[in-house]
Design a protein around this nucleic acid. Structure first.
Lengths: 203, 203
DNA sequence: CTTGGAATTGAACGCTCGTTCGGTTCATAT
DNA sequence: ATATGAACCGAACGAGCGTTCAATTCCAAG
């Protein structure tokens, strides 16, 4: 018995990536064996190598696909209005992405050290590009006099860490709804840089 | 040659813990082998077992010692004044601890998933106790009308994540001095909850 | 100067790791 | 009906894992 009935690469491929993503996020790249991934999918360990040349590439491709998706998704979400409104939108967008794909985001931020140098360079470039979005918003806010930020890169790092941290505690079906979490984090982000939404301005 | 000259448990013991802390923080618990730790210390792998019953306990004791130290240190730092001033002090304290011992703090927050259930329960209790400090400050700030916080546990989580994130980018000798980083993070923390230091109040 | 315990070596154990590969079965196109 | 390639199994490889232990050497107390 070598090829079970119903086997299909179009089905198994995504299942391999899903299983790897789940397990990497839960236990960490180094702690997850190829056999564990295969068992999660329900195939033998050897069959994994129809879907990835090796374990490292499996991680790398998960991270790259995710980061490219995030960057592309923001490009379509960016309201392109006042900096304070863009920051509000960015905070909500970031939170939404985390709550939609907690595993992928967690891996992208936590398993950088597991990447081999060449792969790390690629991922790091994408990560910097994403963080540059927030830096640009803050710089524009300072220029427009809408925000008080003493150091833009520092503030961007601090806000990203704050927003990303939502995955460490939020659980679906808990005390707070997703929309509430979004709103509260966005308010804190605006408050941290001394800004407020244009709709809340007091003239 | 089995026992080299100059060997001394009083010296080797701390060096084992230091090496483990450094390597765990850099590569992750699962990715660090006992042989790698031993090599860093300059002894054989077998000799490590004079200083720890096993690898898991080595991690556990590092985390517990660190968390107990943080909690004790804050008890002596707490200004016990107005909530806004306590939050300012807490933010500075947290940042200082991160910059003094980036490896230990990083491990305590990142390697929770590497702990066996019994050890996890102990560490989780200590971690909650530390986070409760911040929750108490925020709750007092809300009660005193000094802060606007819609949800105290959420705000505490967000602030802790923001403050802890400093380790991911700060490097000694970089663009910013430690004191500046402290001040900027404390300002952002206060801003995020709509507070300000008592010395900055406008009467 | 002797002696006993402390510190360490280095080999070895059983196990699991990532990866390879020959063989086997299923799905599909002709 | 047949043939071909895709999908997969299961065994195997060498390497490295955490851990144990007898043997060995150093240090300090008497």
């Amino acid at each position: 018995m070598a090829r079970p009935s119903g086997s299909d690469a179009g089905v198994t491929g995504p299942r391999v990536r899903d299983a790897a993503e789940r397990l990497f996020a839960a236990h960490g790249y180094a702690a997850v064996s190829m056999r564990a991934i295969a068992a999660e999918v329900g195939i033998g360990a050897g069959a994994l190598y129809h879907y990835t040349p090796d374990k490292q590439t499996l991680l790398f491709q998960l991270m790259r696909a995710h980061l490219e998706e995030v960057i592309a998704a923001w490009a379509e979400t960016d309201p392109k209005g006042a900096p304070a409104d863009r920051l509000d939108a960015f905070a909500r967008f970031h939170i939404q992405f985390h709550l939609d794909r907690p595993e992928a985001v967690f891996i992208a931020y936590m398993e950088l050290r597991a990447l081999e140098p060449d792969n790390f360079a690629v991922i790091e470039t994408l990560r910097r590009r994403y963080e540059a979005i927030l830096r640009d918003i803050l710089a524009a806010g300072v220029a427009a006099g809408e925000m008080q930020v003493a150091d833009v890169p520092l503030a961007a790092n601090a806000l990203i860490a704050m927003l990303t941290g939502v995955t460490t505690w939020y659980r679906e079906g808990g005390r707070l709804e997703r929309g509430e979490v979004e709103t509260l984090y966005a308010q804190m982000a605006l408050g941290a840089v001394g800004a407020q939404k244009s709709s809340a301005k007091t003239f």
